[in-house]
Amino acid sequence: MDQLLSLAGQNLISPIILCFVLGVAASLARSDLSIPEAVAKGLSIYLLFAIGFKGGVSVAAHGIDATLGLALLAGVVLSALLPLIAFALLRLMTQMNRLDAAAVAAHYGSISIVTFVAATSVLDSRGVAYEGFMVAVAAAMEAPAILSALWLVAKGGGDGSKGMDNALLREIMLNGSIVLLVGSFFIGWATGEDGLAEISSFIVSPFKGVLCLFLLDMGLVAGRGLREGGKILRPAVLAFGVLMPLIGSVIGLGFAVALGLSSGGIALMMVLSASASYIAVPAAMRVALPEANPSLYLTLSLGVTFPFNLTLGIPLYVAVSQAVSGG
């Protein structure tokens, strides 16, 4: 418990978290502070490239084994399974209608890459090693949740669903974030340590500073979402936004331990299972389930679950992973 509190305390006063808090506070106070859209997009491209490249370099250094394939498979299964649990929990806890519940559930099966990046930053700063291929697991977990959600709606009669067409499938599988993450992962894998040495002054040293600015923007967006969408979140829905990541992290923990991942790998699998998407899945839901309420799922994933994971969840998952692995 002491270790958990210490880790949580260190996490809360890190520049990354404080930048996020600044963004939320500025937004709630109705400050005109904003990060221009193009700058925010540039920051996210930088972060995706850097995290993908470094993951690929790590795989090049340590080689590949069966664990990589099994971890990818575990990621796909988790992403498909978690929406079913989230859906049941939402229906039980909140009496949310089937369409909204399925749309929200999809977000909780998919992942938040920024939460993943923040978690790797915490692990790096504590010197905890993790498997580089977890970046690929993150990419593999983006899409299956969307299919599960559409299946849940179709099973209930399909009202409100436009279903999955080839264009939507292509958009999901080839969305820019996945292409950049996987592409930079392969570049890092192909070029290895030599490639990293060539560009480390660009992708290693400035990484945390860029992450700070990006989280400032995320804080502004989360604060705006809370201000504008907070009134639609009833206590039971809010409780789901905190409970579901804890349930997801425990399931992720089980998969990670079964795979024999390192302490850092376990923590990252827990983070991926606990996080909720707010980039790829909302766009897919707007196309496939246009009558589901976007304020509901965006506010929950971005305004409740993301801040929870960032401030309290990550230190909790790291502490649990270290306790379980003895690391």
Binding site: P36, V221, L298
Partner: peptide, 11 residues
Amino acid sequence: WSRSGQVSRAS
């Protein structure tokens, strides 16, 4: 709503 500060194309 405003275009700046959208993390997702969804909105």
